[in-house]
Structure formats: structure tokens, C-alpha cells
């Protein structure tokens, strides 16, 4: 549980405060976090395929309609599956993805800590 808490605080800390940004910037930001289904491997922002261009207009439309960033992600996840989001959500499928590196870090720290404790004895 502590892991998750630690992690959530990290997340909150890093959720960029975009409130001030205009819709145009927000649109760019959002489309950079979406993966294109046509040229898979590019973001919607980077891609110039028809699908990507449509999606760019859609994001703009939704922002003008007053959608929040999160709501747009949810909307698209609903239509195309989680694959379209470049940032994997934190759920049962991705606990390992998010926590394993942190766990590695802690294990590494423990080993180094042990090194110095051992020395003293």
C-alpha cells in the first residue's frame, strides 16, 4: 500500500499544471500523448495521416465543447482501446510496469545500504 501511496504522490507532483495553457497548446499536448493507428509508432501529433488529422480536429472540437483532458482520453480509450494512450494507466495490467522499476531502485538501495552496514560489523 505504501508503494502505491508514494507513487500516487509522485503522480500528482508531476501532473503538469496546464490550466493556464490555451486550448491550442492543450490540443498539441493531448495529441502528443495519443498513438496513431495508421502509422503505428507515431503519435497523432507527429503523424500526417488522414486518421491523425481527423483526430486532431476532434480533440480541438471536444476542447471547445468544454471537455477536460482526462475526459478526452477516456472518450478515445472507449472507442479505440487503451492502446491509443501513450501513457499506460495505473491498473491491474500495469502495476508491474510502473512499480517494477521503483522496486529495482529500492532493491539497489538496499544492497548499497547493506554494503555499509556490513562494513561496520
Amino acid at each position: 500500500m505504501k508503494f502505491i501511496k508514494f507513487f500516487l504522490t509522485l503522480l500528482i507532483l508531476f501532473n503538469f499544471n496546464l490550466a493556464k495553457a490555451e486550448n491550442e497548446n492543450l490540443k498539441n499536448e493531448i495529441t502528443k500523448n495519443l498513438r496513431c493507428l495508421i502509422c503505428q509508432g507515431q503519435s497523432i501529433y507527429d503523424s500526417d495521416s488522414e486518421f491523425a488529422n481527423s483526430l486532431k480536429s476532434l480533440v480541438k472540437q471536444k476542447l471547445d465543447d468544454g471537455y477536460k483532458e482526462k475526459e478526452i482520453y477516456d472518450f478515445l480509450k472507449d472507442k479505440y482501446g487503451e492502446w491509443i494512450l501513450y501513457e499506460p494507466e495505473f491498473n491491474k495490467n500495469t502495476y508491474f510496469l510502473w512499480l517494477l522499476p521503483i522496486l529495482m531502485f529500492l532493491i539497489g538501495g538496499a544492497i548499497i545500504f547493506k554494503l555499509f552496514i556490513l562494513k561496520k560489523n
Binding site: L11, R35, S43, G81, E82, L85, E87
Partner: peptide, 27 residues
């Protein structure tokens, strides 16, 4: 982990996800 995790998830549970820049930046 970010690079090979999607392969693991796909093989084990057939769920497909993308791991992109936001993941790496945050960690």
C-alpha cells in the same frame, strides 16, 4: 521494462497497451 512490458502483457493476458514518452518522463 517500458520497452518489453507490452510484449509480456500481450502474451500473458492478450491486452494491448502502449508505453510512450509520458511513462519514461514520469519515471
Amino acid at each position: 521494462i517500458g520497452t518489453i512490458y507490452p510484449i509480456f502483457l500481450d502474451v500473458i493476458s492478450s491486452e494491448k497497451i502502449s508505453v510512450g514518452p509520458p511513462f519514461y518522463h514520469k519515471l
